[in-house]
Amino acid sequence: MTNRKNLGLLLLILAVGATVALINPRFLAPVNLSNTANLVGLFGIFAVAQAFVIISGGIELSAGSVIALLGVLFVDLIATETLSPLVCFLAMLAMGAVIGFIHGWLVARLGLQPFVVTLCGLLIYRGLARYYTEDATAGFPFGASFPTLEWITTGRILGVPNSLTAFVVLALIMGVVLHRSAYGRYLFATGRNEEAARYSGVPTARILIAAYVISGVLTAIAAVYFAMYTRSISPSSHGNFYELYAIAAAVLGGCSLRGGEGSIVGVALGVVLLQVLQNLVNLLGIPSSLNFAVMGSVILAGVLADNHFLRRRDRP
């Protein structure tokens, strides 16, 4: 069933792509595809992060704020403290893990609702990011250069952006974890029916916490990639609404907000569709203000079509 869902999504992407290419052939120009691929990589990494939490039956609303906070810290640490980029990167991963652990702990051990926990996170991290820079933009000075870091994050090999490569590698690893490992099975079971999982001896609290930690670490990686892409971060607006992009991609990709359902391939396809839509708005000269409306309409159409076909198949 998941495969058919993904196939449908792929067809939708191809249909949208073909339409755009017909109207403006430059959609298929290597440079445009490469640019879009770069953004697919950036948004894909934390969409996978979101998928883990959604499959656990939760939701992670603080992703955008975490991207802002970690981005600000990362840029600031490198630009002003002149620490080695590797050390900074590892520090960000650690912070992402800590944030994820706190969320998971509050959800799994104290039984707070994920929506509430991460909504508070959304506000707290945004506030911390703004306080840290006193609302100023964190950016590299003119001409600052970090060749290795820049190559890893924004470089391209034969036109393939390294951010996309990073996303594909992470998605493969996470796909194996989710769909092949015992942990993945436990996560699906816990997300769909936590009680039954507990009655089967699944350590549900640990599984949930791990899902949030994985999500936190992946989000931290995304934060670094975003920071290197924009090279300057205004803490009040950086990453705003990004959690919603991730949720949209996950839902498009077949994740159920009830938990226990979803696939990495689906999420990746969801991200591709969203980025093609963004690209489409610019390439077809649609007024930028309609951006969100286009995105919302296509998601709704996708979900409706999915629902329709599922119902048809369920009928005897």
């Binding site: 430059r26 640019n35 953004l39 950036l42 607006s237 950086h238 690209n279 610019n282 000269g285």
Partner: peptide
């Protein structure tokens, strides 16, 4: 010829420039 908006989202701001470069040689 055109002015593209980004809702003060720097990622979109940068992407707008990339897309403009790709769409209008």
């Amino acid at each position: 010829i055109d002015v593209r908006g980004d809702d003060i989202d720097m990622t979109r701001a940068k992407r707008n420039v990339e897309d403009a470069l790709a769409a209008n040689p």
